[in-house]
Amino acid sequence: MDEQETAERVAAAMTAQDAAIRAAGIRLLDIGPGRARATMTVSESHLNGHGVAHGGYLFFLADAAFSFACNSRGVSTVAAGGDVSFLRAGRLGDELVAEAREIALAGKSGIYDVTITAGDAVVAEFRGRSRAVPHLPPPYA
């Protein structure tokens, strides 16, 4: 199995097994080795008391794309940490797209950047730190 096939197999298994991602309306658009794009349309259930997308959902979308990207090589990987900078509000009906890309891999540790956009506008920037946990079953098992 080549790297792209591994990434696709991992993504299919993760999508099937992650009820939280499905419940939030997050959908995978694209996957490849060390990268992923996911989307979520801001609905009323995503809004905070100010009537804009709750920051937790923005973080969740970024974290989902990050998770797909860092598991795409077929080694079970978890988040070691993540930080987000909110730059613009997500509004009701916005189609948010989170694009994750691998920045560095060193041993069991990785760094991934995720940009969330709504159209041409950058909504948030996320940096995730990953840790491979190869003692767990592969993410597509």
Rank of each mutant, 00 (worst) to 15 (best):
G32N: 03
Q17A: 15
G56M: 02
A98S: 02
R27G: 09
Q4H: 13
M40P: 04
F126Y: 08
R9Q: 13
E8Q: 15
A65H: 00
T39Y: 12
D120T: 14
L47G: 05
A62H: 02
H50I: 10
A141P: 06
V114D: 00
L47F: 07
A69S: 00
V42D: 02
G49Y: 07
E99P: 03
A36K: 01
F59P: 01
P33I: 06
E5H: 14
H54T: 09
I26G: 04
D63V: 08
F126K: 07
L96V: 06
G34V: 03
R37W: 11
D94I: 00
A132V: 01
I111D: 12
R88C: 10
G107P: 01
A19I: 15
K108M: 13
Q17S: 15
V10T: 07
E44A: 15
A12H: 12
G51M: 06
A23V: 08
L28A: 03
A124V: 11
F68V: 08
A62Y: 03
A53T: 06
E102L: 13
K108V: 12
S67H: 01
G55L: 10
E44L: 11
V123A: 11
V122K: 11
R35D: 08
A106H: 13
L29S: 07
I26S: 07
V75H: 06
Q4V: 12
R88Y: 06
E99W: 07
T15N: 11
V10R: 00
T41E: 09
L136I: 14
F59Q: 01
S67P: 02
H50D: 11
R35V: 10
G56Q: 07
D18M: 10
P138F: 05
S76A: 12
M40T: 00
E102Y: 01
R35G: 05
H50P: 12
C70W: 12
D63I: 08
T41R: 14
F126D: 02
H135K: 15
A24I: 06
E5K: 13
N71W: 02
F68R: 04
R35M: 10
E5P: 08
G81K: 01
A11Q: 00
A118F: 09
S76H: 12
I103L: 15
K108T: 15
A80M: 04
S85V: 14
A65P: 02
F86I: 11
R88F: 03
F66V: 05
G55F: 07
Y140C: 09
A141G: 14
G110V: 05
V10I: 12
G56W: 00
S109D: 14
A13M: 10
I31W: 04
A7C: 03
V114E: 00
G74K: 02
I31F: 01
E44S: 13
S109T: 15
